[in-house]
Design a protein around this nucleic acid. Structure first.
Length: 617
DNA sequence: GTAGGGTTAG
């Protein structure tokens, strides 16, 4: 047995034979208490516990106090099972609120015991005594937030009111965090507005809640208000950096980075976390160079740092660098074990560059070499990749062999591939039916209807095209086309695929022709130079439109509107696909201009109704 | 008599 650092029996205390004197027992008690202060491991705690068990103390309260300490210590060593055993060894009527709270806290901090924390709290309520207090609620609320248990959380909120604790700052912070995590901004805001006292954590939790739902403007507004009374800390800045990323605002992001360097100092853990958000922010704002710089400069990196960097490369179409980064990560000297997110990033990298062989390799490798079971997302990437490359049968086999139910996105990528690769109408029909039957989001099913109508149109089955369009109208399904935007002189211009509504349409299409001709001269055949796709209107009459990605319209507009060699920054509301990267890269090469296309960006709506994404570039 | 809040990737 490992001995305690201190001798168990102080020299002046006689051995515990028979009934000890009151003063001797008092000495024992004090001694154990002081030992508990220096206890640093479970084995030391067990000795302390054993010693407590065979000692008689002057009164029961003193004994219970010690048990509380033991409970607290075992939880602090993350041995929650031990805490439970200690708790259960104590008679029910002797369970103090301290003991309950300590146990609930231990569960709330343990990833796999969040539900248990809530159950314990319920048990506490059922017993009726002791009543929950201001220490109980923050832990219970944390557990609720973690499992996104909004209905549980709301009930807890009622009890907060019932027990008269709605003025406690810790409890209120827990409530803001809960509502923020569940996306209930109005409730979070209400708690925040009405709390009698606010701490830095209150502000941080509220800012975080705003960032989570994409209310970046309001988050910045609150950040400015906060600065009147508090100095921001690492948590604040983490949210602020995420807000910059969400806005796609490189200049705001750069400002936040400078602010961090100038004003903040963090411990190592926070430093890693903040740098990870900076990497993500720079990637999302199109500055891969800065992201790499932050990454290279990190003294300590964790899995998230590698994942953020790999994903950055992947989404910018720089697949080889993504794979290279992966190789470095798993090499002996770094020895970081990739997880599910890493492989999503890797598969996205392969997907964006159409690297089928590599994609298949990594998809295999994730299970065999790293024991990461593919989830829906991984299947989504690989199926899209394989199908896009024209291996429709293989893709269908993958879909049918999946251990989980394919979602609409997967069906849609299959259908998309069928359309592009000219699969049979019957097959496309069948897949489209699957997409529509999943009835997931409007976007997926609207995509399926649109693709299906295209399938019929390419087979000249105009009646069927009409039927599909009619079905869409009947089901209230609106087409949600891809949309790209570019800001010129402070005005945001939006384009849809095949859009002809822009006042400068004529010049834009002339420029597109110049682009296409140049691309063709270097041997690339863009979609639009192939035979125009036939689309059809509701009444079945034919309408010709070029299959044109919206970002190419934006790029063309950028080329005619911006001075030569000015970087062209385009935003897309949907995912930037592999073809887009390919074409963009070529245009960029031919015109000797930097072109950045960013995906899935929220548009930034101003209070006066104007809209822009690029106001901070 | 003991204590407490906010963080991670698609």
């Amino acid at each position: 047995m490992v001995l305690l650092l201190h001798p168990l029996s102080p020299p002046h205390v006689p051995p515990a034979t028979g009934a000890p004197s009151i003063s001797a027992a008092g000495n024992h008690h004090r001694h154990i208490l002081s030992l508990s202060e220096t206890c640093t491991s479970m084995s030391q705690l067990k000795q302390l516990h054993a010693y407590t068990l065979r000692t008689t103390f002057p009164d029961e309260n003193a004994t219970l106090f010690l048990y509380g300490r033991i409970l607290q210590l075992s939880s602090s060593f993350s041995d929650v099972n031990y805490s439970f055993r200690v708790f259960d060894s104590i008679q029910q009527e002797n369970h103090s609120s301290f003991m309950w709270n300590t146990l609930i806290r231990a569960c709330a901090h343990d990833v796999s015991r969040k539900e248990e924390a809530i159950l314990l709290y319920r048990k506490m309520l059922e017993r009726g005594n002791p009543a929950p207090d201001k220490h109980t609620f923050p832990f219970v609320l944390k557990a609720c937030a973690y499992i996104f248990g909004l209905s549980e959380g709301r009930q807890v909120h009622c009890q907060v009111v019932k027990y008269g604790l709605s003025g406690d700052v810790y409890v209120n912070n827990g409530l803001i965090h809960l509502y923020g995590s569940c996306g209930c901004l109005d409730l979070a805001q209400k708690v925040f507005n009405y709390m009698p006292e606010r701490s830095l954590v209150s502000w941080n939790s509220m800012i975080d809640a705003l960032v989570r739902v994409g209310e970046y403007d309001s988050a910045f507004e609150l950040f400015r208000q906060m600065q009147r009374s508090f100095e921001p800390d690492g948590y604040t800045m983490q949210s602020v950096v995420s807000a910059c990323a969400g806005l796609g605002s490189l200049s705001l992001g750069t400002w936040a980075h400078a602010f961090l360097v100038r004003r903040c100092e963090f411990d190592v853990a926070m430093d890693v976390l903040i740098k990870n958000s900076l990497i993500e922010m720079y990637c999302k704002c199109g500055s891969l160079g800065m992201a790499e710089q932050v990454f290279q400069g990190m003294q300590k990196r964790d899995l998230a740092s590698w994942n953020a960097m790999i994903l950055g490369f992947a989404t910018h179409g720089r697949a080889y660098e993504a794979l290279d980064c992966f190789d470095r990560m798993v090499r002996k000297d770094e020895n970081v074990k990739p997880n599910s997110v890493t492989f999503v990033a890797i598969l996205i990298a392969c997907n964006h560059r159409g690297m089928v062989k590599k994609g298949r390799q990594y998809f295999e490798m994730m299970v065999t070499d790293y024991g990461v079971e593919p989830a829906l997302e991984h299947y989504g990437c690989i199926i899209d990749l394989v199908a896009r490359a024209g291996y429709i049968t293989e893709a269908i086999e993958m879909v049918t062999g999946m251990p989980m139910k394919p979602d609409a996105v997967i069906w849609r990528s299959l259908l998309d591939a069928c359309c592009k690769k000219g699969a049979s109408v019957e097959l496309s029909e069948e897949i489209a039916r699957n997409v529509i039957e999943t009835r997931e989001d409007n976007q997926s099913s609207s995509g399926a209807y649109v693709l299906l109508s295209r399938v019929y149109a390419s087979a000249s089955r105009w009646n069927d095209v009409g039927i599909v369009r009619k079905l869409m109208t009947e089901h209230g399904i609106r087409k949600e086309p891809g949309c790209s935007s570019i800001e010129i002189n402070g005005i945001s211009h939006e384009f849809f695929a095949g859009d002809t509504s822009h006042p400068q349409t004529k010049q834009i299409y002339q420029q597109l022709k110049v682009i296409d001709d140049k691309l063709r001269s270097i041997g690339y055949l863009p979609d639009s130079s192939q035979a125009p796709l036939v689309d059809a209107t509701n009444d079945g009459s034919k309408e010709y439109s070029l299959r044109l990605h919206s970002e190419r319209l934006a790029i063309a507009f950028g080329l005619i509107s911006l001075p030569p060699q000015t970087p062209i920054r385009v935003f897309k509301n949907l995912r930037v696909c592999g073809d887009c990267h390919e074409v963009t890269k070529l245009i960029s090469k031919v015109f000797n201009t930097e072109i950045i296309v960013r995906d899935r960006v929220r548009f930034h709506h101003f209070k006066d109704g104007s809209c822009s994404c690029l106001d901070y570039w």
